[in-house]
């Protein structure tokens, strides 16, 4: 999977939850990715290094199993 595209998607989710504050936004982003992303997408973004992830998206990904 194209990690750059997945990063864009994760950042977009995080940005839309950002209004809830960092902590809640990270939890909501993590939950959203858990509920709606296929396993290979989750695996690919976690393996991607997270260079361009926003802080909320990065915090969200760190919460995934």
């Amino acid at each position: 999977m194209d990690v750059a595209h997945l990063t864009l998607m994760a950042n977009q989710i995080a940005r839309n939850f950002a209004v809830q504050g960092d902590e809640r936004a990270a939890a909501a982003t993590a939950e959203h990715i858990t509920l709606f992303w296929d396993p290979r997408m989750k695996a690919a973004i976690r393996a991607g290094g997270g260079a361009d992830l926003s802080p909320i998206a990065a915090a969200a990904l760190s919460r995934l199993d």
Binding site: L35, F36, W37, D38, P39, M41
Partner: peptide
């Protein structure tokens, strides 16, 4: 686990 959406 959820599956892929069309664009995915």
């Amino acid at each position: 686990e959820p599956g892929l959406r069309i664009p995915n």
